[in-house]
Amino acid sequence: MEEDQSYFGTEDIDIEQEIQDLKKKKTSQMELVWLRFKRNKLALIGTAILFLLIFVAIFAPILAPYDPLETNVARRREDPSRDHWLGTDQLGRDLLSRLMYGARIALFIGLIIVGVSGGIGVTLGLLAGTIGGWVDEVIMRVVDAFMSFPVLIFGIAFAVSFGGGLYPVIMAVGLITWTQFARVTRGDVLAIKQEQYIEGARAIGESRFSIITRYFLPNVLPSIIVVATIQMPSAILYSAALNFLGVGVEPPTPSWGEMVNAGSRFMQFRPNMVTVTGLAIVVTVLAFNFMGDGLRDALDPVRRGGR
């Protein structure tokens, strides 16, 4: 009898029909995330700002009214006017154009730094948390050591010894800001380790690797996203700060840090340059934070601490 071949084998199932039905009913995972995400108004605003920023960064050559490198000694340090909406800098370059081109650098730097530090941090955090013992000890002491370095000093030293420029700065900031990723990942892993579903995974014979990739990683992901959205703006800030101090993007390439630096020199009588650039940094940072908050709540089906 067919019935005796399996525990179940109750009735014949029209598999095609079932799959068709399922397809109709299934709201895809992304749709669900989006449904939850759009309930958070701040997150939507943040995302809109970021999209605008990305749009501006990509189409800067078309959108910018002037060449950001074109100087005009006759019209230096001007207040906003019809010709120059945000005014000009100390060399008579159009501020709006420089701000637009600067967004390219800022976003690029933010992404790469978070990628580097996230990659290092999450991997080490997972190792520390899952293996434990002396591996955990060693990794966490390294984290402590790195956390005690002042980021800017390390950044300057590292960048200068590798010849300055953009990439040494990116590497420097990436190499020093991974600690937060490692700590958060490890902390989450230690909590998840106690969960019964990890024991359940072992009971069905999951390998160590599968347990890490299928059980630990998806469950730490919401926290990692939050850290990433916190790290992203601070990466932009750090690189701006390093720029301000003179390492990183070489002049005359427009970068926000360098612009704040230049503007600060004549802040008393022409505050527009510092204010406008500073505002751009603040808005970008906030937009990332808002979006990250919304993403975390939307991605986590259990919605720990979600609204």
Partner: peptide, 16 residues
């Protein structure tokens, strides 16, 4: 050999 735990809430991976 397999096991069924007491607490069904804790025995399933919330992300699966």
């Amino acid at each position: 050999m397999n096991i069924v735990f007491q607490d069904p809430v804790a025995s399933l991976n919330p992300q699966m």
